[in-house]
Design a protein around this nucleic acid. Structure first.
Length: 566
DNA sequence: GCCGTTTTCGGCCCGACTGTTTTCAGTCG
């Protein structure tokens, strides 16, 4: 038997993933089977998120197909990459495509088709030229804001990720720190701990007997991390997932000070300790500050929950010991925004009701899409009448949970609602949302929403701004006018808890709550398991400073139904 | 190329509307 050739040095997961992503890019530029392209992309993503070294696993002859998105084909490609340092198919492709296409292999987040389209129209042939045109604003002018954002995202080095995607990554790194790096204690800090919606840096505070050794061990995460910097008590790395990782050392006696100082936000710390001198004194003095309470106490403050540390009014409230008692997952009594197979959901009404009951909910509102939203299987008037009768029958049989009759009703371009009034009147409440004509001007878009709220059957405004995090900014609205109108009309808002929406933002949710309007924290679930997105919505609600009294679906059913009446 | 409560093939959403189009790509959930 001939021994396989052995590559000189081990490859990091980042390097391996880069090759798979490169394959995807070139296949895409060549117009290959889109599902094959997606398979390579997905596998690259999986590997980028992995703590274990692919290189080590290949050499140990481990079964790689146990990872999602890696089958026989890609597993053998990985073997080839690790053992020979090359991927034959990729080299072959690189040799056959023009240089401007080959170059795209290094930019896995750029869509080759869009890039080549731009090249053709602009008469350019390279990424540097593309960057230059982007800076001049020519891309935006010629192809619109969306293309511009796509190119920008694809060209920047570090890419932010959704908090809900960063959480499992953080958990994996925390395990690695505790199990493989001899950390005595390791906890997330920074913006992630404050539950900011997107993450561009993961940060940890660690307690360890030997920081240099811990840093050395951590550098082996994911088969090897690029080190961006290090000193005696901190270190920074580049993670394969595109974000950075920061580690701060703290002894047990100073754990609290370090947590306060690293959790931030900058604004919060600045307001708390303008010169930064007091925190530094606590950090370097002899008095132990093992927990955050002791630190805030030293400042004459009550402990501020991390979610509130944004430099709003939290310090004033902490001084008076009047911080809000923030809403928790356990306070939620039901779901008010959920889809079923009637439109674009995955489960039937009965199955969703079962999933809601498993979560001990008192009620579940069924809000399938309305008739105009064809792509999402919008429900016809006739079918919604049928659904109303079906839910009545289900409620007679079910115990322990009440299914509420509702709909996610499209707000049409002119501000009218997507069903006639007699049908809307037969529902317990409505969630009304914009799903079309995002590009109306601010004034027109605002009028559209105000007019919709004038309909007496309008109950809750769904995902108020239409933003998609890291993708789309959403439509323009005069939000203050919308709030004032909602208040006058007796309408509510939702915090849509889909991890890529989180809309209302914490800032907007704060404004709504200040106007005395209750907010529903809704998941927009399209599957039973998506009811658990509630945790993301609760993060937003807490960042907005909401107590349970301010949250619509913390109400028991009878009070909820009364609140719905306008 | 991956995957399997339709498991070794065949699906992997997708369908109507918008735009400042110029004959189709992009966009909404």
């Amino acid at each position: 038997m001939v021994a396989p050739p052995v590559a000189s040095s081990p490859l990091t997961n980042a390097e391996i993933a880069q090759r798979l992503a490169g394959m995807a890019q070139l296949l895409s530029a060549q117009g290959e089977n889109p599902y094959k392209i997606r398979a390579y992309r997905r596998a690259a993503e999986t590997i980028r998120g992995l703590g274990e070294s692919i290189d080590e696993q290949v050499r140990a002859d481990a079964d790689l197909t146990r990872y999602a998105g890696i089958g026989k084909g890609i597993a053998s490609a990985l073997r080839e990459i690790v053992l020979s340092g090359k991927l034959g198919q990729l080299e072959l492709l690189m040799a056959t495509v023009p240089p401007e296409v080959a170059e795209l292999g290094d930019y896995p987040r750029l869509d080759p088709k869009r890039v080549l389209q731009a090249y053709k129209k602009l008469g350019i042939h390279s990424v540097p030229e593309l960057k230059a045109r982007l800076e001049k604003g020519e891309i935006g002018k010629m192809f619109g804001a969306r293309m511009e954002q796509h190119f920008r995202n694809g060209l920047i080095e570090t890419q932010a990720m959704l908090l809900d995607d960063a959480d499992p990554l953080a958990a994996s790194i925390q395990r690695f720190l505790l199990e493989r790096c001899a950390a005595i204690r390791a906890e997330t800090t920074g913006s992630t701990r404050r539950r900011e919606e997107t993450v561009s840096e993961l940060a940890f505070v660690v307690e360890t007997l030997g920081f240099p050794k811990l840093v050395e061990s951590l550098a082996r995460y994911g088969g090897g991390l690029k080190r961006l910097g290090a000193d005696e008590t901190s270190a920074r790395f580049q993670l394969p997932a595109g974000i950075t990782l920061r580690i701060e050392a703290a002894p047990a006696s100073k754990w609290g000070v370090t947590m306060v100082a690293t959790t931030g936000s900058e604004r919060h710390l600045e307001m708390m300790d303008p010169a930064g001198a007091r925190l530094a004194r606590l950090a370097h003095g002899k008095t132990p500050y093992p927990d955050e309470s002791s630190v805030y106490h030293a400042f004459g403050l009550a402990l501020v929950p991390p979610e509130l540390r944004e430099g709003n009014d939290e310090l004033e409230l902490a001084r008076r010991d009047a911080l809000p008692k923030l809403v928790t997952l356990e306070d939620i009594r039901g779901e008010l925004h959920a889809h079923t197979t009637s439109s674009d959901g995955a489960l039937s009404i009965a199955e969703m009701a079962e999933a809601a009951r498993e979560r001990s909910y008192e009620y579940l509102g069924i809000t399938d899409h309305s008739q105009s939203l064809k792509i999402a299987g919008g429900v016809s008037e006739e079918d919604l009448w049928k659904q109303i009768r079906l839910i009545d029958r289900l409620n007679e049989k079910l115990s322990g949970i009440r299914i509420l009759k509702s709909s996610e009703v499209d707000i049409l371009a002119d501000g009218s609602l997507d069903y006639p009034d007699d049908l809307l009147a037969a529902l317990d409440y409505t969630v009304c949302s914009i799903h079309s004509r995002f590009h109306l001007g601010k004034a027109e878009q605002t009028e559209r929403v105000l007019r919709a709220m004038d309909n007496p059957h309008f109950t809750i405004l769904g995902h108020a701004t239409g933003r998609l995090l890291l993708k789309r900014t959403g439509y323009e609205l005069d939000f203050e006018r919308v709030i004032a109108h909602a208040r006058a009309a007796g309408c509510f808002f939702e915090i849509n808890a889909s991890p890529d929406r989180l809309d209302l933002s914490p800032q907007n949710a704060r404004l709504v709550a200040q106007a005395g309007i209750r907010i529903a924290v809704c998941t927009d679930a399209h599957h039973g398991r998506e009811l658990d997105y509630l945790r993301c919505g609760i993060d937003v609600a807490r960042r907005a400073g909401l107590e349970k009294q301010a949250v619509l679906n913390c109400l028991p059913l009878p009070r909820l139904l009364r609140a719905f009446r306008r």
